[in-house]
Amino acid sequence: MTTESKQTSPLYVPHFTPANYGSFFLAGALCATITHGAMTPIDVVKTRIQIDPALARHGLLSGGRFIVSKEGPSALLTGFGPTAVGYFVQGGGKFAGYELWKKQFVTLAGDKDTAVKYRTAIYLGAASVGEFFADILLTPLEATRIRLVSQHGYATGLVSGFMRILREGGIRDLYAGFIPILFKQIPYAIGQFTVNELCHEVAFRSMSRETRAKLSPTGKFSIMLGSGVIAGFAAAVLSQPADTLLSQINKGHGPKGPILYRLGILARQTGFKGLFVGLGPRMVMTAGLVSGQFLIYDAIKQAMGAPQGVEIHKASKGD
């Protein structure tokens, strides 16, 4: 075949209006705040296992019982306010940002064949850039949440905790965790979106176009749930080391100095095994978070009549 006779497949990129991106933001905000809010008790136990020596050898259930016995059931809801607000703005920014940047990178590819060839790089890039901007909104609220969880009695809630950090340490302390949060959240987003996309592709490539079009609601739900659970496991493993370091930074552990220096010292002190303390509970939590987010996100988008995102999977069987 000559170069002149080679044809590339036409590229169709949907046009998203500002209202569409508003729908993506709202759906992402609601799915993130609902799931993270519901997971607050698990996250409290996970965070305490990471930073409290008395809980270092506990699992999720035994750690929860220990906290309740010492501090009462309400301790498991510590940090609910900043969790709900923080992940509302972060979830909206992340999901809308992923849709925006995936569309931009697909357009940059120029044709369908190139977009499909480099689809993994497109997923990685869109997840990373979208998450970066979302984390600018999340960081001060995450710092407040971790301070409330890790220091019993630090403040009575979101506003008082936020204002105390601002008063005592200023913007510097509110954003002390920005670099480690990027190290945590960008791998998390990469696992969440990229693995979810690839799992859907594996499922759909085994079907003909006709079979896929006739999928029952139960079949669609099963694929979405299974893909979300696997993506959640991947997100947890990829982001666990930085999650541990972020908890320690916000607790005030480690030496003074530039953040990367502090992270390096803390990583050496913690050791490889220590960086993955609490991974089991976090995998359970993250699988529920990610799968729940995708299910809720899709349901809210459908309810609002929002379009589907750009799809660049390989062709289904028989196409």
Rank of each mutant, 00 (worst) to 15 (best):
Y87K: 01
G278R: 10
T286H: 05
I265T: 13
V106S: 12
P18H: 04
G254I: 02
S5P: 01
G191H: 12
K117Q: 12
T114V: 08
T35K: 05
F95S: 02
Q308W: 09
G274I: 07
S62E: 15
L76Q: 11
L100F: 15
L55M: 15
V129P: 07
A19T: 10
I190Q: 14
G232S: 10
I49N: 06
F24Y: 15
G157A: 06
V159N: 09
Q7N: 03
Y175L: 04
G169W: 07
L124C: 11
M39N: 14
G288E: 04
L11G: 02
G79C: 06
R147M: 04
G37P: 09
D52V: 00
A231I: 01
A235S: 15
A303S: 15
E4F: 12
S160K: 12
K6W: 10
T47S: 11
R119T: 03
F132I: 09
Q308T: 10
P187V: 03
F133T: 04
H58K: 14
Q269G: 07
Q104P: 00
H313P: 03
L246H: 12
E311Y: 02
R167A: 10
G91Q: 05
K70E: 15
V106Q: 13
P82R: 04
R262W: 11
E168P: 06
H200V: 01
A19N: 07
A19Y: 07
D243W: 00
K103C: 02
S208M: 07
P14F: 02
P255M: 03
D243C: 03
Y188N: 13
P53I: 00
A299T: 08
V68I: 15
R48N: 03
A189H: 12
L60T: 05
E71F: 14
P14Q: 15
R212I: 00
K117V: 02
R48S: 00
I42Y: 13
A56E: 14
G22I: 03
L76P: 09
I259H: 04
P18S: 00
G161C: 06
G130P: 06
F221N: 01
N20R: 05
T78P: 07
K46F: 09
